[in-house]
Design a protein around this nucleic acid. Structure first.
Lengths: 210, 210
DNA sequence: TAGATTGTTAATCGATTAACAATC
DNA sequence: TAGATTGTTAATCGATTAACAATC
């Protein structure tokens, strides 16, 4: 039941991949020290993370840049992307859809829907905003299994229910509220302001001490 | 040097505050069990978190809802808000500015700037987008000490440098790249896609096992 | 007093990091 | 061989949770 690669490690893989492409040096290898410096993490962390993927480095030499990048892409599933639907074509939904361009995560946003008639038909990063009423059809037709909620808090539970009815089993909730779903459906909640809040808290704490 | 309240706890406080207002029951108290159910966490977690704020419950009775809410607001600094500047008036910057409305975090977005002439003068959640060239003046005039980077990766380092020049010492970076700053400047990086990536990874892992 | 619920301790779990033997 | 760097172990750290004495 336990995932073979810890979440904290999964979260760092795209960062490594980005750093690798920037780090491309004349020689074909890089050390965990190089990568750690570029990514801003500890070098033991880097080696530990890579050990979960299997071993791909050479002692005394380092990691083959191309090999490593290929391995990271494979683990992240950048070849066989997960089709994702976003509900909510507002700023947050659009920001997420545009993030698709980054392409260092193994998913693919294939549909963005909204309840607002005015938004339906608009273009968001190459996708046409569709009506929320069609989600069951769209989900089935495009084999979508991950849904993203990017609507205001008051609409979140209703949207989640629609996702569940449509057969979605993994939901990411960006609305600042707790939503409920039947067992068998995985829900993750994300508060985009949480890091800002923690930063502000530390700042205030620092001043209190001074 | 260590913060008295763990980050993980700080991250949950706004959630508790929101749940409290929804939970407002006829009587004036709620138990850690009630709150845990509403917030989707363990009840021991709730009590432990509150113990960091000092003790505010009554054994055998629970927590006074108003007392607890007031205490949460105080710790989060909702009275003396931190002035925040956002650089980048695109979808992500706008989404963050609109998050301000939630008001369960102790900060206040007082300025949003952009480099794009076309965006300057636009309204975003009641703020007029200003020119990035004026940030030094704006930062000084409005006592801003937290800066948020919501621009594409290629512009992030330049924007960070401008923040540092303007005297900002806490930076939150939403661009998918690592940026560098002199010692004394705190930088936090946020990847808004990370949770989606982890969700997709678990999904794929689950299928692999099945 | 009896029942309920806190506050705290101790156990557990997971993630980070220092250290170093293995080995290229 | 000598130098460099991995892969892994063990120590450390921090966060979660079960359990229960304290006490309203």
């Amino acid at each position: 039941m336990k995932s073979p690669i810890p979440d904290a490690t999964v979260a760092r893989l795209p960062l490594y991949l980005r750093c690798l492409s920037e780090l491309r040096s004349p020689d074909e290898h890089c050390s965990s020290d190089d990568l750690a410096a570029a990514a801003g993490v500890n070098s033991a962390q880097v080696r530990k993370d890579f050990s979960y993927l299997g071993s791909y480095g050479t002692r005394g030499v380092g990691y083959g840049i191309d090999d490593l990048a290929a391995q990271l892409r494979k683990v992240l599933g950048l070849d066989t992307k997960n089709p994702v639907m976003i509900i909510g074509a507002g700023n947050l939904g659009s920001a997420l859809a545009n993030y698709k361009g980054i392409d260092t995560w193994g998913f693919d946003i294939v549909s963005i829907v909204d309840i607002d008639e005015a938004k339906i038909g608009e273009e968001v990063d190459g996708l046409t905003v569709e009506s929320i009423d069609n989600i069951a059809t769209i989900v089935a037709a495009r084999s979508i299994d991950i849904g993203v909620i990017a609507v205001p808090a008051r609409a979140a539970q209703d949207v989640a229910d629609r996702f569940v009815d449509a057969g979605i089993t993994s939901i990411l909730n960006f609305a600042p509220t707790v939503i409920h779903a039947p067992v068998g459906v995985t829900i993750r909640r994300v508060d985009i302001a949480v890091s800002l809040g923690i930063l502000a808290y530390h700042k205030a704490e620092e001043e209190r001490r001074a």
